[in-house]
Write a protein that binds this DNA or RNA. Structure first.
Lengths: 128, 128
DNA sequence: ACGAAGCTCCTACACGTGTAGTAGATATCA
DNA sequence: TGATATCTACTACACGTGTAGGAGCTTCGT
């Protein structure tokens, strides 16, 4: 269970912790958009489950409230999501990119930026 | 419910239909890798649920067996999967591409191919 | 025409997820 | 210090998903 699978709602909780740092349950709840904000105890349940999955941990206690922090990085979680998607495409990323291009979500600029990134990375990796 | 959300197992069933055409439940089951192949009735349940979701339909009857065919295209389903993923990234594809690049899944060749595709598509779209 | 083999339809159940209530502990304010 | 607000811990439940069994209808071979 190195990288647990996180659901949509769980990811929203993680998102609060990733972008705002260590928080209490209340603060996490308040990080939800006011429109359709789950009940306090709903958030609490998610927090407990994330704790069970070792995705977050109790950092300290302030007053009677526990403060939680993410123990999985946003990057790791994102990688997991993408890998899951890729597995449906036989692990190959080309169809995904092709789709993004065909639906116009990926522009020429985006692709060229990606190209720059590849070149930059290969410069850092190879010369050793 | 234009494009229902399909689960992993449901997608495997769809996959059989997409790649082999109209099939009976038995044929779908046999399309699963021999290693870890679900019970006949498990596949049958998936087929019924997919029917409920209007993702497949009964095409005809051969002997006492129904023959099913996909009523959702592979492309549409894939688009749905990708859109779901993107929604986590705020709808923006760049982070996804960046991830693919950083984890070495997307090579320079892949990106250049994508670039070609964009140019080809824009030639077909714009001149009108 | 009868039995074996196969298929359909219904039912069941455990686990994960989203949703939330309640009881009791704890802290805070006047 | 007593009332009020807040938090924790536990419990509950419906729905989706993966998994499959069983009863009964259908077909096919002999």
């Amino acid at each position: 269970m190195a990288l647990p699978r996180l659901t949509k709602l769980e990811l929203q909780v993680m998102d609060a912790l990733w972008s705002r740092g260590a928080l209490s349950v209340r603060e996490i709840q308040e990080a939800f958009p006011e429109k359709d904000r789950p009940a306090y105890t709903t958030v609490q349940t998610m927090v407990y489950r994330l704790e069970g999955k070792k995705a977050i941990r109790r950092l300290k206690k302030i007053g009677n409230a526990h403060i939680f922090e993410a123990s999985i990085s946003r990057n790791a979680a994102q990688r997991r999501l993408i890998d899951d998607l890729l597995s449906f495409f036989g692990g190959s990323p080309q169809p995904v990119v092709a789709h993004l291009v065909e639906t116009g979500k990926l522009t020429l600029d985006d692709v060229q930026e990606a190209e720059q990134l590849i070149r930059k990375l290969s410069k850092k990796e190879k010369p050793r």
